[in-house]
């Protein structure tokens, strides 16, 4: 009886019409001809253990390449004896997030203050060094996934508040503030990121007086921040517009001014609505970071490029790109899941 029901369900879901039956069979066939060779290449024929290219003789993927270069892909050209500093900083970050998840509301507040107010400076000090006996590690030696994260985390932290201010500015009744915001947003949304990075990396130093120079990484982070802030502003504006007039009036009738009403009434609701949009912008930002290759910064994809052009490892581009795709996917998927969790937690209606 049960078996029959299953069969019926199966038939109804996959073979209800001739077209559906055809699609089902085609998809099964497509999977049949693509998945086994792919699985063979990735797992069964692949070489995992070894130390050089010639160890890969099995015909499948040569994961030895990723294995040997793993430390470079993660830390870039950061000096090996200083890598503990990166690990320590990310360890502190992971620990605070862990504590945050288990702590009560009061402690959470302090952790947030620490994460946004203190941690960026601690981590930058650890990465860059230059005092307390830590040798300086120039940003030119930063690279790999570490650099990808530095760029995206700082750009995310800074573009978010800037985006909110711009969104409020665009809806402001003060003409100076309003037209400045509109001009800013339209300008930065109108130019391609690669051009912005090129200007920041290549042209900007020419405008500075001789002898003064802003570190290239800082220039790049500022450029990405301004660029993404324009997108963030439009996302947040969408949220602000979705808040009904009644909310503004209610805030006013309680005697709240512009800032108070925005910070306690309007923004918390608006931001909650646009969480998917914000996540979208963050994910886009994260995936835009490989463009810093045009200004010579070797983030994870740049390091893979460097590795695949090493004379002893030529011809292993595919393995490198598959690895990069996996890393990017893992981070983006985590961001998407996290935003979903946040959305559910903040759900107040019904």
């Amino acid at each position: 009886m049960m078996k029959n029901l299953n069969l019926l369900w199966f038939k109804e879901k996959f073979f209800s019409t001739p077209l559906n039956a055809f699609l089902t069979i085609s998809i099964i066939y497509l999977g049949f001809i693509t998945i086994p060779p792919l699985a063979n290449w990735i797992f069964f024929d692949a070489t995992f253990i070894g130390s050089k290219k010639s160890d890969c003789v099995s015909g499948g993927a040569c994961w030895v390449f990723v294995n040997v270069w793993f430390e470079r892909f993660i830390y870039g050209l950061y000096p090996a004896e200083e890598i503990w500093r990166i690990n320590l900083a990310f360890g502190i970050l992971a620990a605070s997030i862990l504590v945050y998840n288990f702590a009560n509301q009061k402690i959470r507040k302090y952790i947030l203050i620490f994460l946004f107010g203190v941690f960026p400076f601690i981590s930058l000090f650890l990465f860059h060094g230059g005092a307390l006996g830590l040798p300086v590690v120039d940003t030119r030696e930063w690279g790999g996934l570490f650099l990808t994260l530095v760029i995206s985390v700082f750009a995310i932290i800074f573009c978010f508040p800037l985006g909110i201010i711009l969104a409020m500015g665009r809806r402001s009744t003060l003409p100076v503030f309003k037209y400045f915001s509109i001009g800013f947003i339209e300008f930065w949304r109108g130019v391609p990121l690669i051009t912005v990075l090129f200007m920041a990396g290549v042209m900007f130093p020419l405008f500075l007086p001789a002898g003064s120079n802003l570190d290239k990484l800082i220039r790049v982070i500022i450029a990405i921040t301004l660029f993404e802030a324009a997108y963030m502003a439009e996302v947040v504006r969408g949220g602000l517009q979705a808040i009904t007039r009644g909310q503004y009036d209610a805030a006013k009738s309680l005697g709240m001014g512009y800032w108070k009403s925005h910070f306690f009434i309007i923004l918390p609701q608006a931001l909650k609505i646009v969480i998917p949009g914000i996540t979208n912008t963050f994910i886009a930002l994260f995936k835009d970071t490989p463009l810093v290759f045009v200004v010579g910064l070797l983030e994870i994809l740049g390091m893979i490029n460097l590795a695949k052009t090493n004379p002893n490892w030529l011809g292993l581009a595919t393995e490198g790109y598959v690895f990069a795709a996996f890393v990017y996917w893992a981070f983006c998927f985590w961001m998407s899941r996290y935003s979903l969790k946040l959305e559910n937690r903040l759900k107040t209606s019904n």
Binding site: E141, F198, G201, M203, L206, G211, N213, V295, G296
Partner: peptide, 19 residues
């Protein structure tokens, strides 16, 4: 030696700017 990896486009500016 401290090495700075450079893209083809920025190499001359990097030299002129003193990087």
């Amino acid at each position: 030696v401290k090495y700075t990896p450079l893209s083809a486009k920025e190499r001359f500016t990097a030299l002129q700017a003193g990087d």
